[in-house]
């Protein structure tokens, strides 16, 4: 069953064409890794999926439903955009936790805000839901191994812990597809491990994930499918074995060679 389908996605910034027609699809519960050198367009692709950038052309479908049609994108109301965004979750390179809230509140802020302004709920129902959200947040926090940090502030915990909180914050909204934008690039190597471990554990669930990453070893181990992007196009696409063990294009060969040199 196809979860995510992207057709002819194009995006330019001024006269620079960053995405030159992207087509691919992803099955439910699969993990897709997108690799490629800086400036190849992979982050822009992810931002288009999350409606942080407006695509110029193309469509994005989730679970058979077209959620982004570039021709229509200007006409979406704020409410529509919000609903579409909630089908996706995004974990940022820079975590982007809210500094004034503690860890638990960072996770519960968005869902509790939604409950609070829901006029169809009575006062008691609201209190009930908020309690439920809080207890769920604690469960998720436990699953990323941060139970004891619930009342810490972002400035009091390490970068790796902050990124695990950011993952928990995305998880509580139960997105159909969870996206990661270079989740470990801002971390020291020793902190990278703990974050990658958490992402790997998410795979055991039925979660569909799109991960933009520079961690080749990780991509190889965790992915069902790998896309190699170069200059705004999908240069090569396939299973991890096909991409890493039998690269066909010269660009991919050079890229893999270069990333191995770094270790």
């Amino acid at each position: 069953m196809i979860m995510l389908e992207i057709k002819n996605l194009r995006k330019s910034f001024g006269s620079t064409e960053v995405l030159k027609g992207i087509d691919f699809s992803l099955e439910k519960s699969q993990v897709l890794s997108i690799i490629g050198s800086s400036g190849s367009g992979k982050t822009t692709l992810l931002r288009c999926l999350n409606l942080l950038e407006k695509a110029d052309e193309g469509t994005v479908s989730v679970n058979g439903e077209v959620i982004i049609d570039a021709k229509e994108e200007d006409n979406y109301t704020d409410n529509e955009i919000r609903d579409k965004r909630l089908k996706m979750g995004l974990v940022f390179q820079q975590f982007n936790l809210f500094p004034q809230y503690n860890v638990l509140d960072n996770i519960t802020l968005a869902p509790i805000t939604r409950v609070k302004k829901d006029k169809s709920l009575s006062k008691e129902e609201k209190a009930e839901r908020i309690e439920a959200i809080k207890s769920e947040a604690r469960d998720i926090l436990a699953s990323v191994g941060l139970s004891e940090k619930a009342s810490s502030y972002p400035c009091e915990i390490s970068g790796g812990q902050q990124q695990r909180v950011a993952i928990a914050r995305a998880l509580i909204l139960k997105p159909e597809i969870l996206c990661f934008d270079e989740p470990t690039s801002a971390l020291d190597p020793e902190l990278t491990v703990e974050v990658l471990k958490v992402i790997k554990e998410l795979k055991t669930g039925e979660r569909t994930m799109v991960i933009v990453t520079h961690e080749m070893e990780f991509a190889k181990n965790v992915s069902d499918k790998v896309i190699f992007m170069a200059d705004g196009v999908i240069e090569e696409m396939g299973t991890p074995e096909e991409i890493f063990d039998n690269p066909k294009s010269e660009k991919l060969k050079a890229f893999i060679h270069k990333s191995q040199d770094n270790f």
Binding site: N50, D78, R82, G89, F92, Q94, N96, R169
Partner: peptide, 13 residues
């Protein structure tokens, strides 16, 4: 990033 984090969590402006 603070705005974008709020946006992807489905919060209004």
């Amino acid at each position: 990033g603070q705005y974008e984090a709020g946006q992807v969590l489905g919060m209004t402006k």
